[in-house]
Amino acid sequence: MLNSVINLFFPKVCFACHTLLNDNEFDVCTHCRNDLPVTNFHFNNDDSVLKVFYGRVKVEHATTLFRFEKKGIVQQLIHGLKYKGQQDIGVFLGDWLGGELSTVKEYQDIDLVIPVPLHEKKLRKRGYNQVAKFAMQIAAALHVEYVDNVLLKITNTESQVLKKRLSRWSHNDELFNLKNKDLIANKHILLVDDLITTGATMEACISVLKQANNVKISIAAMAIA
């Protein structure tokens, strides 16, 4: 009865389609959940994400939870997370992917989880890093440390969606900086982001993280375009 009263005044709606959730539904309605384009890369030994980085940077393992489809459910979720303050979406997706990765042997030796950072100006404007809670939940599921004071973004870039890869990252080493590198020496890092398109952002991050001694890097993201 208490839940019914709470839902009357603070109705729970689906993060994707915004319809009212039933009592046995959480975060995303059953219909949207069934329609989500799940990849299962980490269960099927699928190297689709790894192929994005072949010949560019060394990556141990790589996966995403979903495939990104323009105007699809995943786009709605990421948009809500990034621009509408719906940070619970990050928790929901982090619990989902983290729970799955905790059962996959390739991710059992992860030592810590690092989110792709925002520049401090964008962080102040938005109020949060949209990847943070996603990464925190994955770290919790893997029983490892979440670290956000090592990789810093030092260049405030504009939206890169429509720019070609070669023009967007002509100076990768000027985008990110490494601090406290001794904290990650000899560690297996899981680098986490929301969306992988060309892989240029991850590539820039990995190049900087590799400045630390003897690090291994794997990748996880919400979706791949």
Results as ranks from 00 to 15, higher is better:
Asp95Asn: 14
Ala139Tyr: 07
Val49Trp: 04
Arg33Asp: 11
Glu25Lys: 13
Thr19Glu: 12
Ala141Ser: 14
Cys17Val: 01
Leu65Met: 10
Glu60Phe: 02
His119Ala: 08
Asn44Gln: 13
Val215Asp: 04
Leu183Ser: 08
Asp95Ala: 11
Thr197Trp: 08
His188Phe: 00
Leu118Asn: 06
Asn40Tyr: 00
Cys205Arg: 15
Asn45Arg: 06
Asn172Ala: 15
Asn24His: 11
Gln137Asp: 06
Lys82His: 01
Asn45Leu: 07
Val49Glu: 02
Gln87Phe: 00
Thr198Leu: 03
Lys58Val: 02
Leu175Asn: 14
Thr197Ala: 00
Asn34Arg: 15
Val59Cys: 08
Ala62Leu: 04
Leu112Gly: 12
Ile217Phe: 00
Lys181Pro: 05
Val74Tyr: 01
His31Pro: 04
Lys179Glu: 13
Trp169Gly: 08
Lys105Ile: 10
Met136Leu: 14
Met1Ala: 08
Gln75Ile: 03
Gln86Gly: 07
His61Met: 07
Cys17Glu: 07
Val116His: 05
Ser4Pro: 05
Leu151Lys: 13
Asn177Glu: 09
Ile224Leu: 06
Glu203Ile: 09
Thr63Lys: 08
Asn180Phe: 00
Glu60Ile: 03
Arg56Ile: 02
Glu174Asn: 07
Asn40Trp: 00
Gln211Trp: 00
Val116Asp: 13
Gln137Glu: 06
Gln130Phe: 00
Ala223Cys: 06
Asn156Val: 05
Leu152Gln: 15
Gly80Ile: 02
Gly199Lys: 13
Tyr83Phe: 04
Ala62Phe: 03
Trp96Val: 05
Asn156Gly: 08
Lys84Leu: 05
Val28His: 02
Tyr107Ile: 14
Leu65Phe: 00
Lys121Pro: 11
Asp27Pro: 04
Asp194Ile: 08
Met202Thr: 13
Asn40Arg: 09
Val5Ile: 15
Val104Cys: 10
Ile206Ser: 10
Trp96Asn: 14
Tyr83Ala: 05
Phe41Lys: 06
Ile206Trp: 03
Ser102Cys: 07
His143Ser: 15
Ile6Tyr: 05
Lys12Asn: 14
Asn3Thr: 10
Pro11Ile: 06
Ile89Gln: 14
Phe9Glu: 04
Asp109Ser: 15
